[in-house]
C-alpha cells in the first residue's frame, strides 16, 4: 500500500514538474498554455493524494475551467505572427536560470532537509468537505472571505474597464432592409399620398440606425 502511494506520488510529481518545465520552455505559447493545464491537472491529483478533495475539485473548476481557459483565450485574442527568428526569452534568461537553480539548490533544498518538521501523520484526517469549509468561512474566516469577495468584484470591474474598447473604434453594423427603410422614412418627409402612416411611437421596435458607408456611396447611383 505504501509503495502504491509512493508510485502515485512519483508519477504525479513527474507530471507536475515535467509539465511546468514544458510551460517555460516550449516556443509555441499555445502549447505552453496546454502544458499549464496538464500541470494544473497534476496538482489536482496531488491534492487528492493529500486528501484535499474539495480543493482538488476547485482546482479543476477554477484553474483548468476558468484561469487556463482565460489564458488560452487571451493568447488567441492577442495572436501575432509567429516569427521563428524572434526569441521567446529575454536576453537575460541565463542569469535568471542561474538564480532559479541557485534558489532551488542552495536555499530551498538545504532548508527543507535541515529543518526538523514537527509532523505527525494521521491515518484518518478530518475530512475537509464543503460543509466544514462553509462553517469556517462563515465563522472564523468571515472577514477574509468578505475581503476576497471585494477583491473579486474589484478585479471584475477593473478587468472590464481595462479591456474595454473605445466606442468610436467599433465597427458600424450593417443595416437590415427594414432598418434602412425606417431610416429613410425618418429622414425624408413622407409623401402626402401616403399620409396613412402615423409615426411609430417611441416603444416601436423599428431600429433605424446609422447608414453604413456603402449605403451612402450607392445613394447616387
Amino acid at each position: 500500500m505504501d509503495l502504491v502511494v509512493q508510485i502515485m506520488f512519483g508519477v504525479t510529481g513527474l507530471l507536475i514538474l515535467g509539465a511546468a518545465l514544458m510551460v517555460v520552455s516550449v516556443r509555441n505559447i499555445i502549447h505552453a498554455a496546454l502544458w499549464l493545464i496538464a500541470c494544473f491537472f497534476g496538482i489536482a491529483m496531488l491534492y487528492l493524494l493529500l486528501h484535499a478533495e474539495f480543493l482538488a475539485i476547485v482546482q479543476v473548476l477554477l484553474y483548468i475551467g476558468a484561469v487556463a481557459v482565460l489564458v488560452l483565450f487571451a493568447v488567441m485574442l492577442t495572436r501575432q505572427i509567429d516569427d521563428p527568428d524572434e526569441p521567446v526569452l529575454f536576453q537575460r534568461w541565463r542569469s535568471t536560470l542561474l538564480i532559479a537553480v541557485l534558489l532551488f539548490a542552495a536555499v530551498l533544498v538545504p532548508t527543507i532537509y535541515t529543518h526538523d518538521w514537527q509532523t505527525f501523520t494521521d491515518p484518518q484526517p478530518t475530512f475537509a468537505g464543503p460543509r466544514e469549509l462553509g462553517f469556517a468561512f462563515m465563522n472564523a474566516y468571515l472577514l477574509p472571505f468578505q475581503i476576497a469577495a471585494v477583491l473579486l468584484l474589484a478585479a471584475l470591474v477593473g478587468a472590464i474597464i481595462i479591456a474595454m474598447e473605445d466606442q468610436e473604434q467599433r465597427r458600424v453594423r450593417v443595416l437590415t432592409l427594414a432598418e434602412e427603410v425606417a431610416l429613410r422614412r425618418e429622414r425624408e418627409p413622407s409623401p402626402p399620398a401616403r399620409s396613412a402612416h402615423p409615426q411609430p411611437t417611441s416603444s416601436s421596435t423599428t431600429p433605424p440606425p446609422v447608414p453604413p458607408a456603402h449605403e451612402q456611396a450607392g445613394e447616387g447611383a
Partner: peptide, 8 residues
Amino acid sequence: VGFFGALS
C-alpha cells in the same frame, strides 16, 4: 520553474 518562466 515558475520563477524562471516569469522572469525570462
